[in-house]
Amino acid sequence: MSDPAIVVEGLAKTFTLHLQGGVRLPVLRDLSLAVFPGECLALVGPSGAGKSTLLRALYGTYLPHGGRILVRHHGELIDIASADPRRILAIRRDTVGYVSQFLRVIPRVPARAIVAEPLVHRGESEQAALRAADAMLARLNLPERLWHLPPATFSGGEQQRVNLARGFIAPYPIMLIDEPTASLDAVNADIALSFIEEARVRGAAIVGIFHDPAVRRRVATREFALAPLAEAA
């Protein structure tokens, strides 16, 4: 087996709610796992078990309070938990992609530009990036008349297809995926899942949350179970 793409060691995350009198909510404790290229790891567990928290910690959005989150970035293992912001931004540009549940709409920016943006950040020409964006949107059956419109007024399913196109446009070595098919019809859900499969086959290490067991069975190569922690004192 090749070297792991993600190594989590002894991860701990507790939320401290200062506005509620400093209540502490421990969500993750002493969590360790490794994910290898070509794997799709499904996070499973009841709601509140910390699946989304783990995913966001892997992306650097949530600050862990213990342990390490090592990701392989240009061949080198880097600890997301302690990396400076610029390093994390570079990792997000080149190495770790995140497909969220909902599209974050930017006013006035047309759908194809939103989709193309990750490639532009990686230094591709705007033209090439937009061509790639069009191809993604076409695959996801988004009507061509919508490509040049900002997605603010799109339906939930249309927005999610824009989101998926953006999430999968760049060949990230690591992909974090949160409920990709939630608001899609069967045809487009199937296309979304084939994106995940293609990414895995090209060697991406994938960590995802898939509530639908059928979806999980189709794309996941392994499951990782989380359980809610007991309330801390």
Binding site: H18, L19, R56, T61, Y62, L63, P85
Partner: peptide, 20 residues
Amino acid sequence: GLTDQVLDDPQHPYSQLLVS
């Protein structure tokens, strides 16, 4: 910190107040 980190997981009481 990073924009999404500070806005989605604010640590300081004042940051939490601002975000909330």
